[in-house]
Design a protein around this nucleic acid. Structure first.
Length: 291
DNA sequence: ATCGTTGCCTGAGGGC
DNA sequence: TGCCCTCAGGCAACGA
């Protein structure tokens, strides 16, 4: 599930592929996708435009175009952005994989989950957007226009400070885990990195946000940044669908300390990692190392 | 204002 | 083999 590190890795890797290229053709083969901007409008607004830069705000990507309009992209749960040379079983469902096993494709073949494909005027590699669960979002923004989705975002999690986290925790009775997931407080943290950061900070996820002492807030802010930076360095976490734009896996999942490790030994005390549900999300922690 | 719940969506995996 | 069920979860919308 793409969180800040995955989105940032996609941004960094995609930048060198698409920046300065001119969009020749937009293919939106299937109309069963919840486009926030209708496919026909998307085509007319994007065709002929040059991509100048890709920016990120929280888990949102913004493609800046030469006419100062922007394409807003959210990957949701299963959104994938990758080039036509990308090869990975993660780019196909199990059924398609079985068929491809005999004749591995050299170029990505759009399937029923591929909702948008971009061809460039230089006829080089295409860019594909694929999203099986359709929680992703595509929105075209005219010059100078924003969107409530962006306006609502809190400070980017990569630059969270103890002061901001402290202020945001005041009088909040929700679990600290839920606060970390609140995109209007800090933007970019999802379930995986919330659990990992809380473990590194040695804080129980169910602790009330307001109960954190200043020192704990300080450690948590630092730990959030540290975990995210490390995940970016390792290319993000590939569990189900996430791949880097070239089709390769991220590697951070190999260094998980708690996420998805229910019943397995804590790296520190060897006791079993516990899973509970907090705010409808599964949360993993070590009951003896985290306080 | 704050908090909790629901619906959106599909594929994988388990039980029978 | 196949059917049914549950689970995964980011986010908007809604109700309390």
């Amino acid at each position: 599930m793409p969180e800040l590190p995955e989105v940032e890795v996609v941004r960094l890797r995609l930048r060198s592929v698409v920046v300065n290229r001119r969009i020749a053709e937009i293919q939106t083969a299937r109309a069963n996708y919840a486009f926030l901007t209708a496919p026909a409008r998307l085509r007319s607004k994007l065709q002929g435009r040059r991509i100048m830069e890709i920016e990120r705000q929280g888990k949102y990507l913004l493609f800046l175009l030469d006419d100062h309009s922007r394409l807003l992209v959210h990957l949701g749960m299963t959104g994938q952005l990758f080039t036509s040379h990308a090869v990975s079983p993660r780019l196909y469902n199990k059924q398609s994989r079985a068929g491809l096993a005999h004749t591995p494709a050299q170029v990505f073949v759009p399937d029923k989950h591929t909702h948008l494909s971009i061809s460039f005027s230089d006829r080089g590699e295409q860019l594909h957007f694929r999203d099986t669960r359709k929680f992703g979002k595509l929105l075209w923004l005219a010059e100078g226009r924003s969107d409530p989705r962006l306006e609502r975002l809190g400070v980017d999690a990569l630059s969270i400070t103890p002061e901001h986290l402290g202020i945001s925790s005041k009088r909040r009775r929700i679990a600290i885990k839920s606060l970390l997931l609140d995109q209007s407080v800090l933007a970019g943290v999802g379930n995986i990195y919330a659990d990992e950061a809380l473990y590194q900070a040695r804080l129980l996820p169910q602790r009330a946000a307001a109960s954190l002492r200043p020192e704990e807030t300080r450690v948590l802010a630092r730990t959030v940044r540290k975990v995210l930076r490390r995940a970016i360095r390792l290319g993000g976490s590939s569990i189900d669908d996430y791949v880097q734009p070239d089709g390769s896996d991220g590697q951070f999942q190999n260094t998980f300390t708690v996420y998805g490790r229910e019943g397995e030994p804590c790296h520190c005390c060897r006791g079993p990692i516990v899973r509970v549900v907090i705010g409808q999300r599964s949360s993993h922690f070590c009951p003896s190392c985290q306080k």
